[in-house]
Design a protein around this nucleic acid. Structure first.
Lengths: 189, 189
DNA sequence: GTCTATATTTTGATAGAC
DNA sequence: GTCTATCAAAATATAGAC
């Protein structure tokens, strides 16, 4: 499986470049140069530039879907489900912050897999919203606009990729705990 | 000043396209088609594609800088300064949600004005951080990691452009108030 | 598995007619 | 102020030698 290894190396390098300039601004020549080979050589391992993007985004989207399913199937209360969601974002983002940049900013450049991605994404947001509404029903969460709460938490979690690489001194567990406190309890004393 | 009008029309149309696909993926031919003219005609009004991007981003960045200076020069307490910052983001984003997409996602494609943009941005973040630290000192804000609080609030505020266009039923004042409650007081009952 | 060479399209931008 | 025609550079991708 030497070929698979090389393919993953290409994807990893591409992920780094996509984070810096975005999918559209990175050329196959940029990617090849970064790998120390010629652009034509890339095509022995990947089908197309689009193939790389699809690989990065879909694997991450499926990972989130899988983790969300675990949370839905758990018997945690709503607040603990939210804390679990936060921990999932911290974990996945810590493992692949560059890939999260593509997931957030370049999904619209997916071609064949765009519809599939949008299905996963919508489902994730619906599940998240439902957990918040459950928490309001069970009196764990304030009876405020669930849409605003969803937006606020999801925005922060989706931006983690910008922040985690700069704060390598904080370990994931501690970060998830602190972030949970801020997102769930607010900043006011 | 007919020329200026046409230039602004081009910038407005470009802003809309940049939001949808990002600066790099939008071609001058795309832009011309959307305006109902030929690509070559664009160059009677703008200097280059880069010229358009610079226009969009720098004017917004300067607007934020100006508003932050007003807040710094006010005698509000720290919590009210945070509420004011939230209101500023809601206001600017409501006026130009598409432009905020470029500010957030395409600033790295600035050329001549990149350093200037980064100066404004760093200053803004430093000022924001200082307000949080002030609030901790004055016992208004919990003595938690100010970096995490800054990150969390700024992430949400920077993502407003994705959300405001979908929620046209909510007026800016109400949105700023609700968002302030969630960001400052949290979601927990 | 990488190379050179190359095909084909597309890109930002200019020149000059109307 | 917009057009047609065009340029030069850069893009993705393929073919075939080594």
């Amino acid at each position: 499986m030497k070929k698979e290894n090389r393919k993953e190396e290409i994807i990893l390098t591409a992920t780094k470049l996509f984070k810096k300039k975005g999918y559209s601004a990175v050329t196959m020549r940029d990617l090849a140069k970064e790998m120390g080979i010629k652009a034509a050589s890339l095509y022995n391992h990947i089908k197309s530039k689009q193939d790389i993007l699809t690989n990065i985004i879909i694997s991450l989207a499926e990972e989130f879907t899988s983790e969300m399913n675990d949370i839905l199937n758990s018997d945690l209360n709503s607040i603990d489900k939210l804390n679990k969601i936060i921990a999932v974002h911290v974990k996945i983002t810590s493992n692949n912050p560059n890939g999260m940049a593509s997931l957030n900013n370049d999904w619209m450049h997916l071609e064949e897999k765009l519809d599939y991605y949008l299905t996963l994404r919508t489902k994730y947001e619906d599940d998240f919203r439902e957990i918040i509404k459950q928490g309001i029903s069970s009196n764990e969460i304030i009876d405020s606009n669930p849409e605003i709460m969803l937006f606020s938490m999801l925005s922060t979690l989706r931006s983690l990729y910008l922040w985690i690489p700069k704060k390598e001194d904080i370990n994931p567990t501690e970060l998830a705990n602190n972030l949970g406190l801020v997102l769930i309890n607010g900043v006011k004393k």
